[in-house]
Design a protein around this nucleic acid. Structure first.
Lengths: 242, 242
DNA sequence: GTATCGTTGGAACGAACGTTCGACTCAGTA
DNA sequence: TACTGAGTCGAACGTTCGTTCCAACGATAC
């Protein structure tokens, strides 16, 4: 988790980063790393007990940071949840925009979207569970911020699908339903995924992209079919099961 | 909600149903209806605030039953959640078994399964949200019971799919992943469904069955295709687009 | 040495939690 | 008439909650 980039912006005014003169960089970094440490443990506790069921004392125990220390680095329990959600979402969006940069074809864009989502989902299961499971736990001032990012993320997926719809001549299925069904497949994973039994993120992304593309497009349009691999690497070809 | 059939079995030993002699039927029924009343409101409160975030006082306020009264009809907060989940699951399974009785064809069985699931889901949104969102909230003695029913429900879906797989000659997709993806599509609905904007349960069931069947089968097997209309009636035959 | 700083430990705050208690009503029985 | 027991409910139980406060700490700066 590389949360601490920019995290100082979110701390209370009285927190250490307010000190702008004198020694700065090493302390600032140590301080930011400690907030990261707290957020990591908080995310784990929230994911295990739920936001309401988790206490600040639980987070204190889990992280080793004393109760008063938690409030020194983050002003409230709400803000902890807020930071976890905001940083996770930003991280996903940032990676996604990078990966999407050179991709023009809608079908490929969708693959990249699913790939990115699942890769983040499975490599940060704790944060993602908090993100998807604790949607309503924030109260209004903070909630709006997270909802705004989420809306942007959904819009991006929907735009990709609309483009795909045009280019493939798909008809008869509402984009809203199609995209939300796709999100359902992906976001439900946290309830069942078992790394010892289930396919890797890459493979899972291929499978779900396949189900979605064929399911949504083949009913009323071209045959898109299955293809394997995505990332442009060398072994791409031999993963083709046919 | 028709919960109170058999609900007496779940009450504490000292509860009113222990009285077996003298006057019986009207009081018993009134008592059971009151438990139903409480469960209905409890389900709503749990679905709005989450199990951990909801207090017995919230449920008392919502239902109009005084705090101590709640404990007269149900021994604990845990048991409230337990009863809500158990009754909802039983209800779904019961209807499903009825509807599945006369259906032999795997494709049609899958349609019935999805239809049944979504119909219950959308007509009992509160209970279903509690069922899907509060999976981990129960502690061990009660949790096992609910998990057992859930396992049976999942197994049923999986058996239908395995049968479908054989009859349609589908290969290359793991049944576990396929079925859990389908559950993802369906169970995610509670996060976005808006009855003023979105299709009815019937229509939604058709759409999702379509995405799933085409997506999972057409990649590696026969073409099944889309179809319109639903409920098990005379037009059943022409629904098979084949 | 001393003043200053970020940080800690621990006690404490009022509020809210799940649950229990006991006094009460009131219809049915003997 | 006296008694019984299901049903009701306000008040309180002990605990835990999020949060605050503050005296003390070790390190750095003058």
């Amino acid at each position: 988790m590389e949360l601490f980039v920019g995290s100082a912006r979110f701390r209370r005014p009285s927190a250490p980063q307010a000190r702008t003169s004198g020694h700065s960089s090493p302390e600032r970094q140590a301080s930011a790393e400690k907030l990261d440490h707290i957020l990591r443990h908080a995310a784990r506790v929230f994911s295990e007990k739920g936001y309401a069921g988790a206490s600040m004392r639980d987070i204190s125990r889990s992280s080793g940071v004393p109760l008063a220390g938690l409030y020194y680095y983050c002003e409230s329990k709400q803000k902890l949840l807020y930071l976890i959600q905001i940083f996770a979402f930003r991280s996903i969006l940032e990676r996604l925009e990078q990966r999407l940069a050179g991709v023009a074809e809608p079908v490929e864009q969708l693959r990249v979207f699913v790939q990115n989502h699942l890769e983040y989902f499975l490599s940060h299961p704790v944060e993602m569970k908090v993100l998807t499971h604790e949607e309503k736990a924030l109260t209004e001032p903070l909630r709006r911020d997270v909802a705004e990012i989420k809306r942007r993320y959904y819009s991006l997926a929907r735009e990709i699908f609309e483009e795909l719809r045009r280019s493939e001549g798909i008809r008869g299925i509402q984009p809203r339903i199609a995209v939300l069904s796709l999100f359902g497949m992906m976001n439900w994973i946290y309830t069942w995924y078992n790394p010892r039994v289930d396919p890797s993120a890459d493979r899972l992304a291929e499978i779900m992209t396949g189900i979605f593309l064929v399911g949504v497009c083949n009913g009323h349009g071209h045959r898109i079919g299955w293809r394997e691999s995505s990332r442009g690497n060398a072994q791409a070809a031999d993963r083709l099961a046919g």
